[in-house]
Each structure stands twice: as structure tokens, then as C-alpha cells.
Design a protein around this nucleic acid. Structure first.
Lengths: 210, 210, 210, 210
DNA sequence: TATGAATGAGTATTCATTCAT
DNA sequence: TATGAATGAATACTCATTCAT
């Protein structure tokens, strides 16, 4: 939650500051990212920074919120279709949406992934607060429904299923980010193939065969 | 690769220094771990430290090597049985071995997991160098054999399979470390159940059904 | 000496600003009191503050003037009775008036006492200017008269006597402020006893015995 | 309690650092004294300073200890004579000793007085710890004895007497420091006169007349 | 080889004040 | 007159590393 002073800034200045900050967090990770470096690159006075944000935590939190907003933009339309589709068809659409997000905001994706992976639970809670377990909780809800519809195995606890599928989603992220330097170069066909392979394993592993 | 001066130290002094360093990396993570803090706790002179190791990177790298050695101790006997077993039976034994490692060296495990998760690819490469992809490469060999024996699906590239199974192994690590504060308290029966569930998904997802 | 812009402000706004400032100086002392904190709490713009006052010094000086005004309110009626009373009887009334001031404005009293005690002579002079030695000068006049009336020892220089009695007044302040958290709880009887003791020492020490 | 690193420094370097620090605290008071300024003037690296002392508090505390040591040097021989003398004769010797201390270390005296006067009780306790109430407690002991010997009034509580006499001692300090720029210029005769006057008031005010 | 003092750039954050609107 | 964004020097303190002994 940046201060009003930041929100009142001309859009371009906000953008510049955020871009610089995002690059900093991306390059160095949360702990090593430096406010001094950010203000220098953004050409603003140190004092100004502290009139925009409460401090490092506040800035980072704001960026996390932005990331979540972007993600939501891609995921939201797909989420709405859940009731009309089989779980795995729906999940496939989620993967395409995820890909689109990664392609559009690879840097944001990396920040998110890095922070998520590293950082003590303590740090995460301090900075993210309730923002924390969103993805996981949201997935749990849908998985629960899918189990009830007999689309997912019911011999495994929902909690475990949710963790597994979350981890798979993270794997999907990682795989794409590490395999391709520039996701815009991934052809439609190639993407289709990757997703099919991914889903094939997931489906065999988790669908209800009874 | 510590310098000779370190290797020539009496075993107990080496041990002390490494124990202190391991605790530091465990508690604070790579970035925040402090050499000053380590030398103070280990009761050695700052200058001495730099006569033992090139610096922070070097020390950490050495610890990673130690971790890998410990892991290997547990994994080695199992690896030897590969030819006598079905891939999934063999993998099950690997999971038990992994569990034993985690139970015996939870602190080392956490360091490894944390560093692996966090840290830019760039940092990882700088510090780990060739130590980096060991697990992955080693798994690849066995997966390849299993595919040849028609125990694993052959409609998916070996490389992809290896990545998937690596990620699953990491998930297994995580799951155990995050779910249980003290792995010595996990009953034989409970462990069996966790591993069975885990394997069930993996097997359904990846075995050759033809 | 605040600027006209401040004096033209509606009374309530002036009050609010001064109350906040007084609290700040009371809580943190002169050096650590922060303008930023004051303007924030008083809900005025930073720029406005500098249109009301020259700066921190100016604001503090103004508060000192206010404090002196309050003190005078209590002391003035007593001062007028000087000619009708013996010096020590008169001084006793001054002590009661002092007590009433402390009881009514403990916060103002603390600011005054703290600043007076701390702060280099240099700082005091810079900030208080001529406001500085008022109490002392005013006491000197009355002491001089008392010496002429043979009520105070004449074997000690008037200047020294004035300093001594000033210091005793400060001691009286201190004693009350440090001994009691809330002066409104001091009973009439108790107060009488304190003042009597205090005066007894003073009188024995300074009255003309000849 | 400076660290060993400081104590191991050559005497002249220790002296230089302390002199600079003492001057800084003298000129600006505790709150405004700046470590940056000290290290710059003493020509040492910032990092070095923190290898000598824990921080600002630690440095200041050390200086307070030094001050107390110096004071004790002057007071100690006099204290020993207490049993052989009348209270007021003994106190007179204490005043002479006090004067010698002020003359020899006027800067140290000012630091002590300033800190003592200013600073919240909270700050004092944090920094001084048990060093705090020494003077006061020590005086109380002697006053108690003097009351038992019927040399001081017994119609006033010992606690109050101790506070009063403490404050008188502080007044004596102040008077000398503010009246004379250079105490080495005060003649023997003049000093005798000042002390006599001071004692005359004190004695009349507090001695047992019965 | 062992030591530990020296280094100075680095950190996040706060400050009183100015000035364009 | 009122505003509040901009400023940059200031603060205490930590860091990994070097180097003379």
C-alpha cells in the first residue's frame, strides 16, 4: 500500500519507479535488492522514495499485489468456465492462461516465483500478510468440487491433491521459464505439445479411473 | 574447494567451523549468512577464515559438496539394486533412502532445498558450477534405462520425464520437511502410506500402460 | 515570534498546532522533537508550517513565551503583595503559586524544566535570547529589596543570593515533579508540610539573624 | 565496556579517539553527538569504530566510567577522613576536591552535568545501568551518619536532606562552571570566599541547632 | 600459518527545509 | 495563503575482504 503521494504521481513516473524496482527485485532477490540502487536508477531523491512508500517491505508488497492483479487478469475468464467443463479440460485452459501471463510478464513471474520459493515463512507472512496462500486456497476449492464430481481420485486426501497440483503448476512455470529465454518465440503447436504432455501425466496420475 | 590450509586443520577444528557455518546458512539463508558471525561463533580469526576458504561462495560450495556426499551415502546402496528391480519398486526404495537422509540431516536438507529454490540461476551457477545438475543427470541415466525396459512411458521425451521426476523428488522433500517438524516422529506405517500415495500418482502418470 | 500567518489563523487551529507541538516537545525533548511528526499529527501541510513559523527554533521559542505567560498568571497576584509581607511569607505564597502552576500545566512545566536543564548555554541563548534570564532578573529585584529591609542576610552578594534562591526554586519544581506522578493528588496538608520543610532550610540559611 | 580491540590499541590512539568523542559529547550533547563526526575527526574508519565499541551507547558509557574514575580520584582521599571531622568541615573538603576536579577536567564535568540533567530517566537507565545513582546513594550514607551524630537537623527526613544536599552540590558545580570560563584563574582566596559563603548558607540551613 | 585490526562502501531510514503550483 | 512533492545530507550500523605483523 504505497502512500497517496505515490498514487498522485504522473503515471509515467510511477511506471518508471516500478519498472526499476521490479528489475532490482528480479535481479537480486528480495534481501539483496537495494533501495539506494533503486532511487539512483530511477533518478529520484532518497527522501522522495520514503514519501512514496513506507519502506522496502511496502514497495515489495505493492509489486506483489501488481503481480497478482496481472495473474488474475489472465486467470479470471477461465475460472468462470469451471462449471461447464471437465476438470482436466478446465485445467488445460488454466495452463494456457498461465502461459499467456508468463509470456506477457516474464520478469514479474520470476520475482513471484523466487520470493515464493525462497524466504522464510516468517518473512513471507510479514510481507505478504493475507496475500499469502491465495493460489493454494483457490485451487483447493476447485479440486474439492472435481472430487465430488468424480473427476479426480477420491482415494487421496483433498489436501494432498491440492499440494500436488499446486506443485505441478509451479513446475509448469519453472519448466517454461527455464527452457525458453523468450516465450514469445514458442509456437502454438509447440505449446500445445508441451501442455498435452504435462496434462497427460497429470491426468493419468490423478483422474478417477473407477 | 577449501584451501589446503583448511584440509590440514585437525579434524575437530574443521568440524567445528563447518558446523557453525552450516547452522548459519540454515538459519539465515545464503544471502543473509554472515562471515563475521561465523568466525565469531567458531572462535577463529577473520584472517584465518580467508586462509581456509576463498570466501563466502567457496565455503558454501564446500558445504554443498558435503551435503551431496551425505545424500550419496544413503542413495548408493539403493542405486546398486537398480538392475534387479522394476523401476517403481526401485524408486520406492530411493524414497525411503531420501527419507532416511532427511531424518538424519534435516539441517543440511533445508540448506540445500532453500538454496536450490531461491537464488537466481546466475547465482546458482556461480556458486555451484558443475555441482549443479548432478541429481538431474544421474536420474536421467536411470530413466533412460527404464524407458528401454518399457517400464516408463515412451511417448514422452526422456529429458522431460527426468525433469518431471526430479521435480517430484523435490516435492517429496518439501512435503516431508514442511509437514513434520521432527521426522523421527513419523511412524513406519505413516511413512509407508505417504510413499504409497506419492508413488501411486507417479506410477499412474508415468508408467507404460501398453 | 510566529509569523502573521499563524496569528491570523482561527483560534482553534492555532490551539491544535500548539497542543501537538507541546506534546512532541514534552515527549521527545527539544533535540529529538520532529517537525515532520508535528505537522502530521496536526494535519497541516509541511509548507504551511514554514509559513507559520521560521522553523523549529521559532516554534519552540513561542512555546516558551506561552509557558512564561502561564507562569505569570499564577505569580502576578502574589508579586503584588510583596510590599505588605515579610520576604519569607511572600516567598511561601510564591511556592504555593508555583505548585498551582505545576499542577495545572505539568506538561508545560516539564518542557521548560527539561530544556532549561539540558541544552548547551549556546543553544539556550540562540533559542531563548532575551527570554532567558527573566526569572532570575525578576527575583533579583525582590531580593535586593528584602536585603534593604534587613530580612535577608547582607553578608552575601545579592547576585549570589539570587542565584541560590533561583536554584532552590528549580529544586522545588524538580522535587515535586519527580516525587509525584499526579500533583492533583497531593493533599493540602502534605503540600503545607513540604513547603514548610523547604522554607525552613531556606530561611535558616539566608535570613538576617542579626 | 569497550571491546578488547579498543583496549589493545596504543595508548595514544585510544586517547585521540576518546578526546574527540569527549569533545563531541561536550559540544552537542548525547542525542546530537554523531558517530560519523567522531570517526572523521579521529581519522579512523567507521568499521574500526564498531570494532572498538558496541555502538554509541557503549562509547558514552565508557566515557561516563572515565568521568567517575576521575571524580573518585579527587574525592576518595577526602571520603576517608569523614570519621575524624565534623560533617561541615568534611563537606568543605569535598567542595575543594570538587573544585579541583572541575578545574582539572572541565569538559568531562560538563558532559556529566549535561547528561545528568537532560535525558529521560529511561535513557539514563539504559546507558548508565547501575552506574546511575552512585553519588546520591553515597551521600545518603554520610548524611545518615551525620544525623546520628547530631550534626545535621533531625526534624527533616534523611531522604529529603540527601536530595537537598545533592542539589546544592550540583548548584556548586554549575555556579563555578558558569561563572568562570577558566577555573585555573580562580585565586585561592577567591575560592575560599565562595566556598565559605556556600557553606554558610548550607550550614545555617541544615545543621542541628539544638 | 595465524592473527585480528583496518577498511570504506554498503544498508535502510529520517530530517528540516525549499519551492513550484 | 495553502499545499505537499522534492531534496539530499544526515543518522547508526554491518559487511566481506585485505594486509601488516
Amino acid at each position: 500500500m504505497p502512500k497517496d503521494t505515490f498514487m498522485n504521481l504522473p503515471f509515467e513516473k510511477q511506471s518508471l519507479i516500478l519498472d526499476v524496482a521490479i528489475k532490482e527485485f528480479h535481479d537480486k532477490g528480495y534481501d539483496l535488492a537495494s533501495i539506494s540502487s533503486i532511487v539512483e536508477k530511477a533518478q529520484i531523491a532518497k527522501g522522495s522514495f520514503y514519501q512514496y512508500f513506507e519502506g522496502k517491505d511496502d514497495l515489495f508488497k505493492h509489486i506483489v499485489v501488481i503481480i497478482n492483479d496481472k495473474k488474475t487478469q489472465f486467470a479470471h475468464p477461465v475460472i468462470l468456465t469451471f462449471d461447464q467443463l471437465n476438470f482436466f479440460d478446465w485445467f488445460k485452459k488454466m495452463l494456457f492462461a498461465t502461459f499467456e501471463f508468463l509470456k506477457s510478464y516474464p520478469v514479474l513471474a520470476k520475482i513471484s516465483v523466487d520470493f515464493w520459493k525462497h524466504s522464510s515463512t516468517h518473512t513471507k507472512e510479514r510481507i505478504l500478510g493475507e496475500e499469502m496462500n491465495r493460489t493454494h486456497e483457490f485451487l483447493t476449492v476447485f479440486i474439492e468440487k472435481a472430487v465430488q464430481k468424480n473427476e479426480l481420485r477420491n482415494d487421496i486426501s483433498i489436501e494432498y491433491l491440492a499440494r500436488y497440483i499446486s506443485s505441478q503448476l509451479a513446475f509448469f512455470n519453472d519448466y517454461l521459464l527455464e527452457t525458453y529465454d523468450d516465450l514469445t518465440l514458442v509456437s502454438e503447436k509447440n505449446l500445445e505439445k508441451i501442455i498435452t504432455t504435462f496434462l497427460s501425466i497429470l491426468e493419468h496420475g490423478t483422474k478417477n479411473h473407477s
